Simulated assay, not measured.
Amino acid sequence: MALVTIVYLISLEYGLREYINESAEFFDVQLIYSWTWMWDFIVMAIFVVAALSIFFGKRWIRIAPAGPIFLTGTAIILSLDAFFPYDTLGPLQYVVPYFVQANVWLVTVLDLGTAVARDNVMFLRGDHGSMALQVFWPSAGVHSIIIFSLVIGAFMLKLNIPRKRKAVYFVLGIIGTITVNLIRIFSLSWYALKVTTDPVAWEEYHKIAGEIMFLPWLFAFILVVVIIESRRLKKSEK
């Protein structure tokens, strides 16, 4: 399985990526990037599940479910984004205007420029001119809330702690994820206000802004919970 994964990754540089891009038209895919990333996560999910199955058998579901859940969940979210882009999925888009309003308020309070919100659109004017940003549920990080819920839900099932404490951790995690998403939208606005309004340069930043914030937060949250519970366990044993 490792060999297959390595072959896949190498083949991407020798025409496979172009083939995947071209296949998007056949499947009537709207967003090419989500389509190509989806296959990356599918391959990695299969590899991780296969590796865990070899080492732990069926017990991997109880021992290490977080990784496969994260990879599979991300692949599913990317598939939704690829086939149902923008505001096609109404329920996921519902909270976006509230995120946009909060961001506009923050930009105004910090006096970073002019910001006006209209539904899911922000009209920004900063140091480099004007730019209109239309925010859809993936850019607002709604998918990260879903993925976080799945990963932390699996993680909490493994913890031998009272349900109330699990619930507290879960709620705090969701609040933290929402905060990270607000920071994400704010950073995108700040980039347009203070760095550049060039669509190409802004899009390059947009591609990486979400994951470089969400993944560290996810791992940091899990680490903090582990540290807290480890200390509580040591105290109870004394």
Rank of each mutant, 00 (worst) to 15 (best):
residue 24 A to Y: 09
residue 30 Q to I: 12
residue 30 Q to M: 15
residue 33 Y to E: 15
residue 8 Y to W: 04
residue 34 S to Y: 14
residue 25 E to Y: 14
residue 4 V to N: 09
residue 28 D to R: 11
residue 30 Q to A: 15
residue 6 I to W: 01
residue 6 I to K: 01
residue 13 E to A: 13
residue 31 L to I: 15
residue 37 W to C: 09
residue 17 R to F: 11
residue 21 N to F: 09
residue 24 A to C: 10
residue 24 A to G: 11
residue 22 E to T: 13
residue 17 R to V: 09
residue 36 T to K: 06
residue 32 I to N: 08
residue 2 A to P: 02
residue 28 D to A: 14
residue 24 A to E: 06
residue 21 N to W: 10
residue 9 L to Q: 02
residue 36 T to F: 06
residue 23 S to M: 15
residue 20 I to H: 00
residue 11 S to H: 05
residue 13 E to S: 09
residue 32 I to A: 04
residue 16 L to I: 02
residue 16 L to C: 03
residue 2 A to T: 06
residue 4 V to C: 05
residue 30 Q to W: 12
residue 26 F to L: 15
residue 30 Q to L: 14
residue 36 T to S: 07
residue 8 Y to A: 00
residue 9 L to I: 01
residue 26 F to G: 08
residue 14 Y to M: 08
residue 35 W to E: 02
residue 13 E to V: 11
residue 18 E to S: 08
residue 4 V to M: 01
residue 20 I to Q: 02
residue 17 R to L: 10
residue 16 L to P: 04
residue 18 E to Q: 12
residue 23 S to Q: 14
residue 37 W to I: 05
residue 21 N to V: 07
residue 8 Y to L: 01
residue 35 W to S: 03
residue 30 Q to N: 14
residue 12 L to N: 05
residue 28 D to P: 08
residue 4 V to I: 04
residue 14 Y to V: 09
residue 36 T to G: 03
residue 21 N to R: 14
residue 37 W to K: 10
residue 39 W to R: 00
residue 11 S to G: 04
residue 35 W to Y: 04
residue 39 W to H: 00
residue 28 D to N: 10
residue 8 Y to C: 00
residue 7 V to K: 06
residue 38 M to P: 04
residue 22 E to I: 12
residue 26 F to C: 10
residue 10 I to C: 05
residue 10 I to Q: 06
residue 3 L to S: 03
residue 7 V to P: 05
residue 8 Y to N: 00
residue 29 V to I: 15
residue 26 F to H: 10
residue 14 Y to N: 13
residue 12 L to C: 05
residue 33 Y to F: 15
residue 26 F to W: 13
residue 21 N to Y: 09
residue 26 F to V: 11
residue 20 I to F: 06
residue 14 Y to R: 08
residue 25 E to V: 15
residue 29 V to Q: 04
residue 33 Y to W: 14
residue 7 V to G: 03
residue 32 I to P: 03
residue 15 G to Q: 09
residue 33 Y to R: 08
residue 5 T to H: 01
residue 8 Y to I: 02
residue 27 F to A: 14
residue 27 F to G: 07
residue 21 N to C: 12
residue 18 E to H: 10
residue 23 S to E: 12
residue 28 D to W: 12
residue 16 L to M: 05
residue 8 Y to G: 02
residue 20 I to G: 02
residue 38 M to E: 05
residue 15 G to T: 11
residue 21 N to K: 14
residue 18 E to C: 08
residue 25 E to A: 15
residue 16 L to T: 04
residue 25 E to T: 14
residue 29 V to Y: 04
residue 29 V to H: 01
residue 19 Y to V: 12
residue 34 S to K: 07
residue 2 A to M: 04
residue 7 V to I: 08
residue 25 E to P: 09
residue 31 L to N: 08
residue 6 I to R: 01
residue 9 L to P: 04
residue 14 Y to F: 14
residue 20 I to A: 02
residue 6 I to Y: 00
residue 12 L to M: 05
residue 28 D to M: 10
residue 5 T to K: 01
residue 17 R to Y: 09
residue 7 V to D: 08
residue 11 S to N: 04
residue 37 W to A: 09
